[in-house]
Structure formats: C-alpha cells, structure tokens
C-alpha cells in the first residue's frame, strides 16, 4: 500500500507497509528511503516541545515564556497550520 506524501511542496509516493499504525489523509509520517516508518501524532510534537521547556525550567529556574522572543513566536505562529 502506498500514499502520496507532501514534502514541503514536493509530492512523492511512499510505501506504508513498514508503518507502525494505520494512517489517514492529513497525517504526518516519518519517511526513510521511500517508506513511512512512523505516523507522527500531532500531540507528540507538542510533547517534544514541552520536554525542552521542562529541561530549561529545571536548568534556569525560568518559565518558557521568558525564552521565546516575540518576533520568533510570531514567525512560528504564522507558519503553524
């Protein structure tokens, strides 16, 4: 089974037989040599970001709000979809 994957504008057909779980249109996948090897749940992206923030809080005693410059936050918000 295959799916068409959009790599930031470049569309490629990718095989799904190695994927860890069923995918649906709109899912993110981790691709390696033309095979999807992981469906990336959107909540896991958030977990990774929270992990960084936790590390920084422990190391600096500051909250995550102190770390993000407003302009960068704007850039990220603009690109979020």
């Amino acid at each position: 089974m295959t799916a068409v994957v959009d790599f930031w504008g470049v569309k490629r057909r990718v095989r799904l037989d190695l994927c860890d779980e069923p995918v649906q249109v709109g899912d993110y996948v981790l691709n390696h040599v033309g095979f999807a090897i992981r469906r990336i749940p959107s909540e896991d992206v958030q977990t990774t970001l929270e992990l960084y923030e936790q590390l920084l809080r422990e190391n600096t005693g500051q909250g995550p709000e102190d770390l993000m410059a407003a302009d960068v936050r704007g850039e990220i918000e603009a690109g979020r979809s």
Partner: peptide, 18 residues
C-alpha cells in the same frame, strides 16, 4: 507541525547556555 519550532534561535541560545 512547523519545523521552525525546532530551530527557534532563542531556545537554542538558552540550551547552549545551559
């Protein structure tokens, strides 16, 4: 998901300092 989130210079600087 936006890959820029994983390239945020402000956070990178904080991590480097840590």
């Amino acid at each position: 998901m936006n890959p820029l989130e994983f390239r945020d210079p402000a956070r990178a600087r904080e991590l480097s300092e840590a």
